Lab assay of single mutants.
Amino acid sequence: HMTFVALYDYVASGETDLSFKKGERLQIVNNTEGDWALAHSLTTGRTGYIPSNYVAPSD
């Protein structure tokens, strides 16, 4: 899985969403939902949907 870094803070709007903080590292599990991606946080160990425009690929 590619690793991504959060560009902004995001507060989950539902139970299936994943909250994260700017700078948090995430792995995209499934990116077939258009503007949303299923992601796993390497920081918190949690998995949920995130807005895909809130993250960018990290080196």
Rank of each mutant, 00 (worst) to 15 (best):
T47I: 10
Y54N: 04
Y8T: 07
W36S: 04
A39M: 04
F20M: 07
A6G: 05
W36F: 09
H1R: 11
N30L: 13
K22I: 06
Y10M: 02
A39P: 00
K21S: 10
W36V: 06
W36G: 03
S52T: 15
G48L: 02
T32Y: 13
S13T: 14
L18T: 05
K21N: 08
F20L: 06
H1E: 13
A56N: 08
F4N: 03
F20G: 01
I28V: 08
T16K: 14
L38V: 05
D59C: 14
D59S: 11
P51N: 05
T43F: 05
G23V: 00
Y49L: 10
S58A: 14
K21V: 09
G23C: 06
S13G: 09
T47N: 06
S58F: 14
H1G: 14
E33I: 12
A12L: 03
I50T: 00
A12P: 05
V55K: 04
T44Q: 06
W36I: 05
L18V: 07
L38T: 03
E15A: 11
P51T: 01
T43A: 10
H40C: 14
S19H: 05
N31K: 13
D9E: 06
T32L: 15
A12Q: 05
T47L: 06
A37R: 09
D9Q: 02
E15G: 08
T44C: 03
R46N: 09
A37D: 03
M2G: 10
A6Q: 00
N53D: 10
L7R: 04
Y10A: 01
A6W: 01
G34S: 08
G14E: 08
S13K: 13
R46P: 00
M2K: 13
S41A: 02
H40I: 15
T32W: 15
D17H: 13
A37T: 12
T44P: 01
D9A: 04
V5D: 05
A12V: 04
S58V: 15
L42I: 09
T16H: 15
T43G: 05
N53C: 15
E15V: 10
S13A: 12
Y49W: 15
K21I: 08
P51D: 04
E33G: 14
H40Q: 11
P51Q: 03
S13W: 09
S13I: 14
I28Q: 01
A12G: 12
M2W: 10
F20N: 00
D9S: 05
G45A: 04
T32K: 09
T47Y: 09
Y8C: 14
T47F: 09
P57K: 10
Y8D: 07
F20Y: 03
K22P: 02
V29E: 08
M2Q: 13
P57F: 12
A39H: 01
V11E: 13
G45N: 07
R46Q: 10
N53G: 13
D9M: 02
P57G: 08
A37Y: 15
K22D: 01
R46L: 12
E15H: 09
A6T: 08
L42E: 06
T32P: 12
S19N: 05
L38H: 04
V55T: 05
T16L: 13
L26I: 10
Y10F: 07
N31R: 13
D17V: 07
T44I: 01
N31E: 11
T32C: 15
G23D: 04
D9V: 02
F4A: 06
P51E: 02
D35K: 11
L26H: 00
I50E: 00
A37H: 10
S58R: 07
A37L: 15
D59R: 10
Y8R: 08
T43P: 02
P51K: 04
T32M: 13
K21Q: 10
P51M: 03
R25N: 06
F4T: 07
S41K: 01
G14L: 08
L18E: 03
N53F: 10
L7M: 10
L38R: 04
Y54W: 08
I50W: 00
Y49S: 03
H1Q: 11
V29I: 15
D17A: 08
T44F: 01
R46D: 06
D9I: 03
L42M: 08
A56S: 10
L26S: 00
Q27W: 14
M2R: 12
H40W: 06
Q27G: 04
A12N: 04
D35T: 10
S52L: 15
E24Q: 02
L38M: 09
A56T: 14
Y8I: 07
G14V: 09
D17L: 09
H1K: 13
N53Y: 11
Y10G: 01
D9H: 02
I28E: 00
H1S: 11
N53W: 14
V11Y: 11
A6Y: 01
G48K: 01
E33R: 10
P57N: 08
W36M: 08
T43K: 09
A56E: 10
I50P: 00
S58K: 08
F20A: 03
N30K: 12
Y54P: 03
H1P: 12
Q27T: 11
E33W: 12
S58Y: 14
T43Y: 05
A56D: 06
H1D: 12
F4W: 13
G14W: 07
